[in-house]
Amino acid sequence: MVIVKRKQLTLGERLYLPEIVRGLSITVRKMFAKRATRQYPEEPLVTTAVTRGQPRLAMNPDQTLRCVSCGMCEAACPAYAITIDAHEVEREIEREPEHFEIDMLRCILCGFCEEACPKEAIWMSDELELADYTRASLVYKLDRLVRPVSQLQGRIDYIEEINRRWNN
């Protein structure tokens, strides 16, 4: 059996009203303080270059993919989210992904793919939202992964800066 010893209330506490006033004063003060919460769907998340969102593939200004489908991200991915099939193209870099799939339901946004990529082709974008009605539609194919380099530039600059600091 556990005996709980109750705290003896002081006179001020037993008078009741001073405590009510103290409590209400906290409530009123917080009404005017800076809010800690956000109205999420209406107010989107603030993202920065540090935000590690969903991986995206960079496309050069001349509409060519940077990715050569070397399979490094596929090998590095701890969640087995990436599947790549290559094919031959007539450019100087002979190889390009024919299919590039990232299963966003599997992706854990760890950023290993970005780190493994030897061609600076895959970057963690600031896109975070992931909602749909079917599982199949959340396996992203090339058409939903490719972004112009300009859109990813913030992240690219940030990673380059980190690498520079690390190497010196």
């Binding site: 489908s69 070397c70 399979g71 596929e74 090998a75 290559a86 094919h87 031959e88 002979e94 190889r95």
Partner: peptide
């Protein structure tokens, strides 16, 4: 076999 697969897969 050109560009068919990465050998470690």
């Amino acid at each position: 076999f050109r560009f068919q697969a990465r050998v470690w897969n």
